[in-house]
Computed example of a mutant assay.
Amino acid sequence: MNMLQRTTGARKVDPTAKASPLLQVAALCTRQGHKGTQVLLVQSSRGRWILPKGWPMDGRTDAEAAKLEAWEEAGVAKGSVGKAPIARFMTKKRFEDGTTAPCLVTVYPIAVTTMTKTYPEAELRRRRWVSVKKAIKLVSEEGLRDILRAL
């Protein structure tokens, strides 16, 4: 079925049509704490706890883009990034004008070894190392919760 249908001389969006999802990459940053694996979360501009994530980048692999997002949003200075994704999940991307779009997020693991106090978005985002159990409670995206449960 076409996305647009002709109805009484006007064009109307077909509500049953499915848009292709936007694509983002995310970094699942982990480290070993005293009580087991910890996950690094950052706070979004709307106050939700999320993984560092962003758009794919020209000239970089998706794994490299995920590592750069971890640096810019959370101050991950050094870490070993997996070249292959460990998971994908669907979410909704909310834009500043209030519109939303389906978004497929591809997640790359990063075993973090070094963090910095100063990084590009330090004034914009809070970051927090938490247990996997706590991360599951903090994040709101069900697909991300499923990924965390698999840890």
Rank of each mutant, 00 (worst) to 15 (best):
K53H: 06
I147Q: 12
T37L: 11
F95E: 14
K35L: 10
Q32S: 06
A17I: 12
V76A: 10
L40I: 05
G36N: 04
V132G: 05
V112M: 03
Q43L: 08
T100P: 04
L22H: 15
G33V: 11
L124P: 00
K133S: 14
A70Q: 00
I86L: 07
V81H: 01
T100N: 05
T100S: 10
M1Y: 11
G9F: 14
V139R: 03
K78G: 06
I147G: 12
R31G: 06
C103V: 13
E72S: 07
S131N: 09
E72V: 07
A19H: 10
S44R: 03
V107M: 01
F89G: 01
A135C: 15
M57V: 11
T7E: 10
E64K: 04
S44I: 06
F89S: 04
C103T: 10
D14F: 01
D14H: 09
A19P: 06
W129R: 07
L151R: 03
V25T: 13
S44K: 04
H34L: 13
G75L: 02
L28Y: 01
V132Y: 02
P21Y: 11
A19R: 11
R31A: 04
M90H: 05
D146P: 05
W129E: 13
Q43V: 07
R149K: 15
K12I: 15
R6Y: 06
A63Y: 02
T91F: 03
A135I: 11
S45H: 08
R149S: 15
Q5G: 07
